[in-house]
């Protein structure tokens, strides 16, 4: 983990309201593991005050890492106006990433919206025996995979409004792949909005399929100091809360109390 002023190499709009930013840091690239995140300070001012957490969306070469983000508030709006050559202070890489699937096991990646970001990085590491199911609200939100450096043969799209791919939820597509014959050989990796994650959790827990979930939380520090990003733990363990920044952001599906979310 380091704190560094990293240079913006590019910051381009790849879908309406969705941006891909490339930042230069050989130190972060060498340390980064799929599922980890960085805390970015969007500027020198105190409003907005706090850093913003972003999953690492991949690396290019030995000194460029990618951030995929959607403009949702003040911080991301400022980021979207940043131009090549400007510098942003980054702390990272942070948190616990994904555990790679064992050889021979088929991976299914399930993303919702901007939740594709950490799974793109993971796909770069997993490469084969992988099905990527990406859900979006509408066709115009689709993140073009080739733009984020991914050339996948096996990718399915679902849109809530039916404007592209499967008309309906991404979890319906997932359910169609969870056939009895496949169950013992699958591993699910997922990131996206909470209702989607809860559905994925229910589907995988009832079928006893291993599943890793990347959670999002409001964070102040990202370092485990503020304890602001608490998420309720399932009754299995001896903890009441986990901290998304340190115990996660990637969790085994069984460790989270989904009822509380």
């Amino acid at each position: 983990m380091i704190e560094q002023n990293t240079q913006i190499i590019f910051n381009k709009k790849i879908a309406p309201g969705t941006f891909l930013m490339g930042l230069r840091s050989a130190e972060i690239v060498i340390q980064a593991r799929p599922g980890q995140f960085v805390m970015i300070r969007v500027g020198p001012n105190t409003d907005p005050l706090l850093r913003r957490p972003f999953s690492i969306c991949g690396t290019r070469g030995d000194d460029l890492f990618l951030i995929l983000y959607k403009v949702v508030g003040k911080g991301t709006a400022i980021m979207s106006n940043a131009v090549k050559g400007e510098k942003l202070s980054v702390v990272g890489p942070l948190g616990r990433g994904f555990e790679l699937p064992e050889p021979g096991r088929k991976s299914i990646f399930v993303s919702g919206g901007i939740g594709v970001a950490p799974l793109v990085f993971l796909a770069q590491a997993v490469k084969s025996n992988l099905l990527f199911i990406a859900g979006y609200r509408s066709a115009n939100e689709i993140v073009p995979m080739e733009q984020v450096g991914l050339n996948l043969t096996d990718i399915s799209i679902a849109t809530d409004d039916g404007t592209a791919g499967h008309p309906g939820f991404v979890t319906e597509l997932l359910a169609s792949h969870l056939t009895e014959s496949a169950e013992g050989h699958l591993k699910i990796f997922t990131c996206g909005p909470l209702p989607m994650l809860k559905r994925v959790a229910a589907l995988t827990i009832e079928r006893d399929i291993p599943c890793q979930v990347s959670l999002e939380a409001t964070m102040a520090c990202g370092l485990g100091a503020c304890q602001g990003c608490a998420v309720r733990a399932s009754k299995d363990g001896n903890k009441t809360y986990y901290h998304v920044c340190q115990d996660g952001p990637v969790f085994d599906v069984h460790t989270i109390d989904w009822e509380s979310l």
Partner: peptide, 8 residues
């Protein structure tokens, strides 16, 4: 254990 989220 502390308070339920959201905490900040």
């Amino acid at each position: 254990a502390g308070n339920p989220p959201p905490r900040i």
